[in-house]
Amino acid sequence: GKELVLALYDYQEKSPREVTMKKGDILTLLNSTNKDWWKVEVNDRQGFVPAAYVKKL
C-alpha cells in the first residue's frame, strides 16, 4: 500500500520542484531516500518537502 505522511508545519514551496502543504495535511510519500527532502504527492502534484516538516503515519 501507499505510505502516508502527516504535515507537522505549513510549508510554502520555494522552487518548482517543491510543493506547498498545510499543517495537518496527509500526503502520499513517494520517496524518502534523501534524509533532508522527501518526495510527496499532494492534490495530484508531486514534489519535495523538507523531511523535518513531515512524519510517517
Rank of each mutant, 00 (worst) to 15 (best):
residue 37 W to M: 06
residue 26 I to G: 01
residue 31 N to P: 03
residue 22 K to D: 04
residue 41 E to F: 06
residue 17 R to Y: 14
residue 30 L to A: 03
residue 32 S to M: 09
residue 23 K to N: 04
residue 45 R to C: 06
residue 3 E to I: 14
residue 37 W to G: 00
residue 38 W to V: 06
residue 24 G to C: 09
residue 49 V to A: 03
residue 13 E to G: 15
residue 51 A to Y: 02
residue 2 K to A: 11
residue 32 S to D: 15
residue 6 L to V: 15
residue 20 T to E: 04
residue 51 A to Q: 06
residue 50 P to H: 02
residue 11 Y to T: 01
residue 7 A to M: 02
residue 17 R to W: 15
residue 52 A to S: 15
residue 52 A to F: 09
residue 28 T to P: 15
residue 38 W to C: 04
residue 32 S to N: 09
residue 2 K to L: 13
residue 15 S to M: 08
residue 36 D to K: 13
residue 42 V to D: 14
residue 17 R to G: 15
residue 30 L to Q: 04
residue 11 Y to L: 01
residue 16 P to A: 13
residue 29 L to F: 03
residue 56 K to S: 08
residue 3 E to P: 11
residue 38 W to E: 01
residue 20 T to N: 06
residue 4 L to W: 14
residue 48 F to H: 05
residue 35 K to H: 12
residue 54 V to Q: 00
residue 16 P to T: 10
residue 40 V to E: 00
residue 41 E to P: 00
residue 55 K to V: 15
residue 41 E to N: 05
residue 51 A to G: 05
residue 56 K to L: 14
residue 54 V to S: 01
residue 44 D to P: 06
residue 21 M to A: 02
residue 40 V to Q: 00
residue 38 W to S: 03
residue 20 T to G: 08
residue 53 Y to R: 07
residue 16 P to Y: 09
residue 34 N to P: 04
residue 41 E to D: 07
residue 14 K to T: 12
residue 4 L to V: 10
residue 50 P to D: 02
residue 12 Q to D: 15
residue 1 G to S: 14
residue 7 A to C: 13
residue 20 T to L: 02
residue 45 R to Q: 08
residue 25 D to K: 03
residue 49 V to C: 03
residue 23 K to T: 06
residue 20 T to D: 04
residue 37 W to T: 02
residue 32 S to K: 07
residue 31 N to Q: 10
residue 40 V to A: 02
residue 23 K to I: 06
residue 8 L to V: 08
residue 11 Y to P: 00
residue 41 E to I: 09
residue 43 N to C: 13
residue 57 L to E: 05
residue 24 G to M: 03
residue 57 L to P: 03
residue 56 K to D: 05
residue 43 N to H: 14
residue 49 V to K: 00
residue 15 S to P: 04
residue 8 L to A: 04
residue 44 D to G: 15
residue 48 F to T: 03
residue 26 I to W: 05
residue 2 K to Q: 11
residue 8 L to S: 03
residue 31 N to M: 09
residue 27 L to R: 01
residue 38 W to P: 01
residue 25 D to V: 05
residue 37 W to S: 02
residue 36 D to H: 14
residue 1 G to A: 14
residue 30 L to V: 12
residue 4 L to A: 06
residue 37 W to L: 04
residue 43 N to P: 12
residue 29 L to G: 01
residue 27 L to M: 14
residue 22 K to A: 08
residue 8 L to G: 02
residue 44 D to W: 08
residue 4 L to G: 03
residue 5 V to I: 08
residue 33 T to A: 13
residue 6 L to R: 08
residue 41 E to M: 11
residue 46 Q to A: 11
residue 28 T to S: 08
residue 31 N to D: 15
residue 45 R to A: 06
residue 15 S to Y: 07
residue 51 A to P: 06
residue 44 D to S: 12
residue 4 L to F: 15
residue 29 L to W: 01
residue 37 W to Y: 07
residue 56 K to P: 10
residue 4 L to D: 04
residue 24 G to W: 06
residue 12 Q to E: 15
residue 16 P to E: 13
residue 13 E to S: 15
residue 50 P to N: 02
residue 33 T to M: 11
residue 28 T to H: 10
residue 45 R to I: 08
residue 19 V to C: 09
residue 57 L to G: 04
residue 27 L to T: 01
residue 5 V to G: 14
residue 9 Y to S: 08
residue 25 D to P: 01
residue 40 V to L: 04
residue 33 T to Q: 12
residue 3 E to K: 09
residue 42 V to I: 15
residue 45 R to V: 08
residue 22 K to S: 10
residue 10 D to R: 03
residue 27 L to V: 06
residue 56 K to R: 14
residue 56 K to H: 09
residue 12 Q to Y: 14
residue 28 T to N: 08
residue 53 Y to F: 13
residue 19 V to H: 03
residue 6 L to W: 07
residue 21 M to P: 00
residue 54 V to E: 02
residue 47 G to L: 05
residue 24 G to V: 00
residue 38 W to N: 01
residue 38 W to T: 03
residue 34 N to A: 09
residue 9 Y to E: 11
residue 54 V to F: 05
residue 9 Y to A: 13
residue 36 D to E: 12
residue 50 P to F: 03
residue 5 V to W: 07
residue 27 L to Q: 01
residue 34 N to W: 07
residue 28 T to Y: 11
residue 21 M to C: 07
residue 49 V to T: 01
residue 12 Q to C: 12
residue 47 G to T: 03
residue 36 D to S: 10
residue 22 K to I: 08
residue 31 N to Y: 06
residue 9 Y to C: 14
residue 51 A to H: 03
residue 47 G to P: 00
residue 57 L to A: 04
residue 53 Y to I: 09
residue 2 K to N: 11
residue 34 N to F: 08
residue 33 T to E: 15
residue 20 T to Q: 05
residue 31 N to W: 07
residue 25 D to A: 07
residue 1 G to E: 12
residue 8 L to M: 09
residue 17 R to I: 12
residue 24 G to E: 02
residue 51 A to S: 14
residue 7 A to H: 01
residue 12 Q to W: 13
residue 35 K to E: 11
residue 16 P to R: 10
residue 31 N to T: 08
residue 57 L to K: 04
residue 4 L to R: 09
residue 13 E to M: 12
residue 26 I to L: 09
residue 40 V to W: 00
residue 17 R to P: 06
residue 46 Q to F: 08
residue 34 N to S: 09
residue 13 E to Q: 14
residue 41 E to K: 08
residue 24 G to T: 02
residue 44 D to M: 12
residue 14 K to P: 05
residue 15 S to A: 09
residue 50 P to W: 03
residue 16 P to F: 09
residue 43 N to I: 11
residue 17 R to F: 14
residue 50 P to M: 03
residue 10 D to H: 05
residue 1 G to N: 13
residue 20 T to I: 03
residue 7 A to D: 00
residue 18 E to A: 06
residue 40 V to I: 08
residue 22 K to T: 10
residue 35 K to F: 08
residue 28 T to G: 08
residue 32 S to G: 11
residue 55 K to H: 11
residue 30 L to G: 01
residue 48 F to R: 03
residue 45 R to F: 05
residue 1 G to H: 14
residue 13 E to R: 12
residue 11 Y to K: 00
residue 18 E to W: 04
residue 39 K to S: 08
residue 17 R to S: 13
residue 19 V to K: 02
residue 2 K to I: 13
residue 23 K to E: 07
residue 35 K to C: 10
residue 45 R to S: 07
residue 41 E to S: 10
residue 2 K to G: 10
residue 27 L to P: 01
residue 16 P to D: 13
residue 21 M to D: 00
residue 43 N to V: 13
residue 21 M to H: 01
residue 7 A to P: 00
residue 2 K to S: 10
residue 3 E to H: 11
residue 46 Q to G: 06
residue 14 K to F: 05
residue 31 N to C: 13
residue 11 Y to N: 01
residue 18 E to S: 07
residue 44 D to I: 06
residue 29 L to E: 00
residue 19 V to S: 02
residue 5 V to R: 02
residue 7 A to L: 02
residue 23 K to V: 08
residue 47 G to H: 02
residue 30 L to Y: 04
residue 22 K to R: 13
residue 39 K to D: 04
residue 16 P to S: 12
residue 45 R to L: 07
residue 29 L to T: 01
residue 57 L to C: 14
residue 8 L to Q: 05
residue 19 V to R: 02
residue 22 K to E: 06
residue 29 L to V: 06
residue 28 T to W: 11
residue 56 K to C: 11
residue 26 I to V: 11
residue 1 G to Q: 13
residue 5 V to Q: 01
residue 46 Q to L: 07
residue 17 R to K: 12
residue 57 L to S: 04
residue 3 E to D: 11
residue 5 V to M: 05
residue 35 K to R: 11
residue 12 Q to N: 14
residue 34 N to T: 06
residue 7 A to Q: 01
residue 23 K to W: 04
residue 19 V to D: 00
residue 33 T to W: 09
residue 41 E to H: 06
residue 35 K to G: 10
residue 55 K to F: 10
residue 12 Q to F: 15
residue 52 A to P: 08
residue 30 L to P: 00
residue 24 G to A: 03
residue 57 L to R: 03
residue 29 L to I: 05
residue 53 Y to C: 14
residue 31 N to H: 07
residue 3 E to Y: 10
residue 22 K to C: 11
residue 38 W to M: 04
residue 46 Q to N: 09
residue 39 K to R: 11
residue 21 M to L: 09
residue 52 A to Y: 10
residue 50 P to E: 02
residue 48 F to M: 08
residue 30 L to K: 04
residue 14 K to V: 09
residue 56 K to Q: 10
residue 36 D to T: 13
residue 55 K to R: 13
residue 24 G to K: 02
residue 43 N to S: 10
residue 1 G to R: 13
residue 32 S to I: 06
residue 49 V to Q: 00
residue 31 N to E: 15
residue 14 K to Y: 05
residue 54 V to T: 04
residue 30 L to H: 05
residue 35 K to T: 10
residue 40 V to P: 00
residue 20 T to C: 06
residue 46 Q to M: 09
residue 27 L to K: 00
residue 24 G to I: 00
residue 9 Y to R: 15
residue 22 K to M: 09
residue 33 T to S: 14
residue 18 E to F: 06
residue 10 D to C: 06
residue 49 V to G: 01
residue 22 K to F: 12
residue 56 K to Y: 10
residue 6 L to K: 08
residue 26 I to A: 03
residue 57 L to D: 04
residue 29 L to K: 02
residue 10 D to N: 08
residue 18 E to R: 04
residue 22 K to G: 05
residue 52 A to W: 10
residue 31 N to I: 08
residue 21 M to V: 10
residue 1 G to V: 14
residue 19 V to I: 15
residue 32 S to Y: 08
residue 16 P to I: 10
